[in-house]
């Protein structure tokens, strides 16, 4: 997205955010819990967008980064009595460090082998590090951590609506951050790295450093999501952060289209309300990953650019048909880029 954002677009976005913030006021507590989950999934997908969409690196350990945030916050709050506001930055920092550590082999490995390494990291985290008896001071051992909800400026976030607004605000900040990053110099560099590492290195860019930065940022966002999830559920257990969750997340982000930031909210809505819809039409919600997998296969073979980008493309074409306008629409130009 190059060039200034039009005034209309900005107003439209503000209206959407306001609607998304206000609508859950009418919903039940259970429904608002799902809304918060959608926001957290959106953050996780955003972390995939940073890594896969910006630098073209595929990762199967995003939930391991989320676990770093979640378990650090759980251990510090429940185990050591820290405040959430102190534990949160520590958790995010731990996740960032984990991300940079995983990214370091990028110094010498191709993207494919690095992807294999992320599988190893995910299984190491899920089947060794978080197993009872390995490091109970971190994993909580047999009894999971129970971090409680914090208060913000004196207002407790224990209510479902308050917590939803809090998570949504964090998501908006993260999206703005990533969006600005993408529009600025960093975004151009990262795209150059994604499109051709060799060419990027030839024009003097430090490819490795930028890849490491992308790993750190991505892991940080995932860690933030993990911390939010820990406090939202009020309990941190290893099963919620395993390899299959990461696989499902990556698949979902790819279905939506990792090159678009809009994939994040779209994926959030899909993961949380998809299973709900399925249970509504008498198909068990355990079928959901099957649908994501099938959708991913169909999408890669038939719609390579991803659902969000394709939809934007189609909408632009429709708008053009309706208005009878000719020429390239900015949305198409972006999709084609």
């Amino acid at each position: 997205m190059s060039g200034p954002v039009s005034r209309n677009r900005r107003l439209g976005l503000a209206a959407v955010v306001a609607a998304v913030a206000l609508l859950p006021a009418l919903e039940s507590d259970f429904q608002r819990g799902l809304d918060s989950d959608a926001v957290i999934i959106a953050l996780l997908v955003l972390s995939v967008v940073v890594l896969t969409g910006f630098v073209g690196q595929i990762s199967f350990c995003q939930y391991s980064f989320a676990a770093m945030g979640a378990f650090t916050v759980g251990a510090l709050m429940d185990g050591h009595g820290w405040s959430f506001w102190l534990a949160l930055p520590v958790g995010v920092t731990v996740a960032v460090l984990a991300g940079v550590l995983v990214g370091i082999p990028a110094l010498r490995l191709s993207g494919l082998l690095l992807a294999v390494l992320t599988v190893a990291v995910a299984l190491f985290t899920d089947r060794f590090l978080l197993v009872t008896g390995t490091w109970d001071g971190f994993s909580g051992g047999a009894v999971p951590w129970h971090p409680s909800r914090p208060s913000l400026l004196g207002a407790p976030l224990t209510g479902s609506y308050a917590y939803y607004l809090f998570a949504l605000a964090i998501l908006c900040v993260a999206v703005l951050l990533v969006w600005n990053l993408r529009r600025g110099r960093a975004g151009r560099v990262l795209r150059a790295v994604r499109d051709s590492e060799l060419a990027a290195a030839t024009v003097g860019l430090d490819v490795t450093a930028w890849k490491l930065a992308a790993f750190g940022l991505s892991a940080g966002i995932a860690g933030l999501a993990g911390a939010l999830l820990a406090v939202r559920i009020g309990s941190v257990s290893p099963g919620s952060y395993d390899f299959l969750h990461s696989v499902q997340l990556t698949a979902l982000a790819t279905v939506m289209g990792v090159s678009a930031i809009a994939a994040a909210p779209a994926a959030g809505i899909a993961t949380v309300f998809g299973p709900e819809l399925l249970s509504g039409i008498a198909v068990s919600s355990t079928w959901f990953p099957l649908l994501i997998g099938t959708a991913l296969i169909l999408q890669l073979v038939l719609v390579p650019e991803g659902a969000v980008v394709r939809t934007r493309h189609d909408m632009a074409r429709l708008a053009r048909l309706v208005s009878g306008r000719r020429g390239r629409d900015p949305a198409i130009a972006e999709a084609a880029r």
Binding site: Q248, L296, L300
Partner: peptide, 15 residues
């Protein structure tokens, strides 16, 4: 690209 093919195999894993 190879990573697209990797994504397909990941989809099969999930399925």
């Amino acid at each position: 690209p190879p990573l697209t093919k990797v994504a397909v195999t990941i989809a099969w894993l999930l399925v």
